[in-house]
Design a protein around this nucleic acid. Structure first.
Length: 345
DNA sequence: AATGCGGGGAC
DNA sequence: GTCCCAGCATT
């Protein structure tokens, strides 16, 4: 392999790449795998504390597979994209069913839940030190700039071109170094804004640099505006001062997490509280609404402080908790804001 | 091809 | 406010 681009990227990496990230120490397939899942759509600095806690509690794939999903989700609380945690837990059990040994080929890795083409390539490369090809946000940005790839980078056609470019420049030797190098290049020099082209090892062949518009790539199609929704969230208090918490269904927003009961706004509130909770003598106070933004919609959360006599019985999907207990459930961020609304007048 | 799925960092 | 982050699953 005498690829000038590849050689320049590799030479730069040994001098200027990142070599001290937590998952780079003792890079077993398990440790690399957990890191890759956490790092999907999540920045390195955000992941590190979660990764440390997670690996302390679940040091092996056996430990992860044997843990209750509940506990796994608690360790993920606040990180977002909770399907990643459920898939990770499922996949750990898949691996145990394979005898506890991780697959070392692309197809079998991709058969594990939550592992797609890029994550499989990363594990092959970083953990197994085999030839693996990745296509994350960093690689997409570096390649689309260096080769001035025009067109919506999320479209199938452009993705195919980028994968082809990635594959053709990925070396057989020093593959792990190259994989890490491309991510480091994208994260530290070829950044989304204000790229540091003067320090770039492939500036002299970069077509976007030559055009004078490096940040014009990758191109994306204009984003459409996202909708706004609203919902009630119940601070439903019993005579002991405890709040009712419900476990959300596995799919959808905050899947599998404990949250306050959510009610649509387009209902007869008193009637709904009576039929759902057997609530009589209801006393309802609206607290200040606040907005939370997801990747695909805005949500106005409307807290309702509700007291009264409740006749309903608990099931496994609901429980009463005092504030201390609630904080141990592993709550998504907006639930913490809702709790604070309890203290308002 | 389009959509669902969090939360936060950088600007 | 906008954009994007070591993407993947589902439809």
């Amino acid at each position: 392999m005498s690829d000038a681009f590849t050689n320049a990227v590799l030479a730069w990496f040994y001098e200027h790449g990142r070599h001290d990230l937590p998952w780079q120490q003792n890079p077993t397939p398990y440790r690399v795998w957990v890191s890759e899942i956490m790092l999907q759509q999540t920045q390195v600095a955000t992941v590190i504390p979660y990764y440390q806690r997670f690996m302390t509690t679940f040091p092996t794939v056996e430990a992860l597979a044997a843990a209750p999903e509940e506990v796994v989700l608690q360790h993920w609380a606040g990180l977002g994209y909770y399907a990643r945690a459920r898939n990770l837990h499922d996949a750990a059990q898949q691996v145990m069913a394979l005898g506890g040994e991780f697959p070392d080929n692309l197809a079998d890795l991709m058969a594990l839940k939550g592992i797609g083409r890029s994550t499989a390539g990363a594990i092959l490369s970083l953990a197994w030190q085999k030839r693996g090809v990745i296509m994350d946000g960093n690689v997409k940005r570096v390649l689309s700039r260096h080769f001035a790839i025009a067109g919506d980078s999320s479209s199938a056609a452009i993705q195919a071109i980028l994968w082809q470019l990635a594959d053709s420049h990925t070396p057989n030797q020093q593959n792990r170094a190259y994989t890490q190098a491309m991510m480091d290049l994208g994260a530290t020099l070829c950044t989304r804004s204000k790229p540091l082209c003067l320090y770039c090892p492939v500036q002299h062949t970069c077509q976007a640099y030559r055009l004078g518009t490096p940040t014009a790539f990758p191109q994306k199609k204009p984003s459409k505006s996202i909708p706004t929704k609203e919902a009630y969230f119940l601070l439903l208090e019993n005579e002991k001062g405890q709040l009712l918490w419900v476990k959300r269904p596995p799919t959808g927003i905050w899947g599998g997490l404990w949250c306050l009961p959510e009610l649509p706004v387009a209902i007869d509130l008193a009637q709904e509280l009576k039929t759902r909770y057997g609530l009589i003598d209801a006393h309802i106070e609206a607290r200040a609404s606040f907005k939370h933004t997801f990747s695909h919609y805005h949500l106005w959360l409307k807290p309702l402080y509700v007291r009264g006599t409740m006749l309903m019985v608990n099931d496994e999907l609901s429980q009463w908790c005092d504030k201390e207990q609630a904080l141990t459930l592993g709550l998504p961020k907006p639930m913490l804001t809702l709790l604070a609304a309890l203290d308002d007048t």
